[in-house]
Design a protein around this nucleic acid. Structure first.
Length: 217
DNA sequence: AAGAAGATCAAT
DNA sequence: TTGATCTTCTTG
């Protein structure tokens, strides 16, 4: 599919964007377990402004039984979980250089809470804007990592605390890819604690992931 | 006040 | 493999 801009298609109350096949994911999608949300977000379309991409890699972090989750060692993260609703953007600055983007997950029935880290997207709209923001040409260099995709989509501290439940500004949409893609689970990337959990989810064989399946040390 | 660690990236 | 770069949290 050739993409020049954010071609709005379809009609009616719910707009559909490039690659989207239905209404945006609502709050209830994020009111479940983080691991299930992370797995099922692979294949969805994320849109923000004129940019959009298919989610091809995510990671789940859980408040309980997971020492890699920020809530385990950051009081500010625990406060964030208390003060925000499911679907809120948790955007933080890492290594003094990059913003990383998460979605807050809260299950009101079980009380389980956690995050889904967006690790890689396959760009489908707004590529020229992404190229300008990233200073790179190759589509594979635009969103193939959590720092890269945040930069490509212009996500930063100003988005921290905003809701990712669909708005005029941004949202997640189901896409035909959701059912077409094969999703595989692997160990998470770049962490030192709780590395045993297979909570990284990838679109099998997709060239836009940050680290290929099986390549985590 | 100072130090260490950290969910990364790009160049060498 | 290494350097860049800085916020959050802990310790003294």
């Amino acid at each position: 599919m050739k993409t020049g801009g954010p071609n709005r298609v379809g009609s009616g109350a719910q707009p559909c964007w490039v690659g989207a096949s239905g209404p945006p994911l609502g709050r209830d999608f994020f009111e479940r377990e983080a691991v299930a949300c992370a797995r099922e977000l692979v294949g969805a379309v994320f849109r923000r402004g004129d940019c959009a991409g298919i989610v091809v890699e995510t990671e789940a972090y859980s408040e309980h039984g997971d020492e890699a989750c920020h809530t385990f060692f950051r009081p500010s993260a625990r406060r964030f979980v208390e003060e925000h609703d499911a679907g809120a953007a948790y955007v933080y600055f890492n290594y003094g250089m990059y913003w990383l983007t998460n979605v807050l997950i809260k299950n009101p029935r079980t009380g389980e809470r956690g995050f889904v880290l967006l690790r890689a997207l396959e760009p489908v709209a707004g590529l020229d804007l992404m190229r300008r923001r990233r200073g790179r040409e190759n589509p594979r260099d635009l969103c193939s990592g959590p720092g890269k995709l945040s930069m490509a989509f212009g996500l930063d501290g100003a988005d921290h605390g905003k809701s990712f439940v669909a708005s005029a500004e941004h949202g997640f949409f189901p896409s035909p890819e959701t059912s077409r893609l094969e999703v595989v689970a692997d160990r998470r990337v770049g962490i030192s604690r709780s590395r045993n959990h297979a909570w990284r989810f990838l679109a099998a064989g997709n060239p836009h992931v940050s680290v290929k399946f099986g390549r985590v040390k």
